[in-house]
Amino acid sequence: MTSHPEVEALAFFAEGLLESDEERNVARHVESCEECSEALDELSNVSQVLAAAPAPELPPDVADRLEQQIAEAVRDRAVRRPEPTGAPSEPESAPVADLSEHRKRRFGLPRIMMAAAAAVFVIGGGAAVVNGILLQDDEQTDAAAPLMDGQAEEEPGPDAAQSYAPELVRSGTAYTEDGLAEQAAETLDRSPVGGTAESDPLPAETTVPQGAESCASGVGEEIGLRVVLVDDALYGTGPDPAWVMFAPDGDSVEVMVVEAGCGQGDDVDESVLAQETVEAS
């Protein structure tokens, strides 16, 4: 007579997880061993006891707390994603506070939410949704990479080829979230990099703001592309400058709006204000 199998082996047996010869052995043993067949019953009884253990329904106050929390998150997001300028229909959401104020607001969240908020900071910083898009595009980039082998790599943009430092322009544009794609395309056209616009070309600036280059390389690393153009401009209605970074990716150009000064110690991620993909002309 074989020795009793371990309880764990019996549990695996019950789930059909044993190798066939082992399974045969256990089956034969259980057939003739009352103790082990009882243990098998007890194992299925464990499932039954667990299934029978009751738990309370969702208490109304918890449901209320969830509603409040979401309402708060919606308000918080509305502040960070301003309405397009020119449509300030809701007085409350009107002038958009600068970034530092948003940060304070986030730290003002109830303590209970801090852990989750902090977790989002790591990847999301001021714009988790924007970063979500960023991550998605990252994956697309990866997926598309094999197709572009030997094509994109050997033929970088005609004007971008020589230098690893991005061109800098000052278009004076106040980029908005809704207009970003169009505004970015226009800047690109007028820039020394795009250079397809006949009129109103933007000169390449030589006075590069401090940190812009390291920021550009940080952004480039982040998205796995190379930033070839930086527009030292504004974003939203806030007074703080924003750098709009352009990184060609095959037939399109990734546009990242970051807080000016992102290279100074912060994670690049935390400085991203918006992101967009535009077609290269």
Binding site: V62, Q69, I70, A73, A116, A117, A119, V120, G124, A128
Partner: peptide, 11 residues
Amino acid sequence: LQDAFLSAFRA
């Protein structure tokens, strides 16, 4: 649950 819904909201 609150942690979770907040991360889902943002993610």
